[in-house]
Amino acid sequence: MGGQSGFGPVPVTEDSGAFHADWEARVFALNAVLRKRGLYNVDEFRDAIERIPPGEYLAASYFERWLMGIEILLADKGIA
């Protein structure tokens, strides 16, 4: 991401607090609990997010990427 062109101006006024919607908070909590339980570590989580296909990655919002990352890890670990 560092140095890539074409993203336009920084959305400097976008500062809505931690979450835009309740589902974002639920995703945050799921990640926190799954990591605390030791299902995966932060680097596995970052790795999973980086495995999202680039088109989807760029189209997704911040917490949509988190959601996809958790889904990828659950699939990896065979959790239905």
């Binding site: 991401m1 993203f7 336009g8 101006p9 400097v12 976008e14 809505s16 931690a18």
Partner: peptide, 18 residues
Amino acid sequence: GPSPSWYKSFAYRARAVR
């Protein structure tokens, strides 16, 4: 406190270093 949306934006992450 929680990070602002702009800090997590592609534009900021891409351009701050460049």
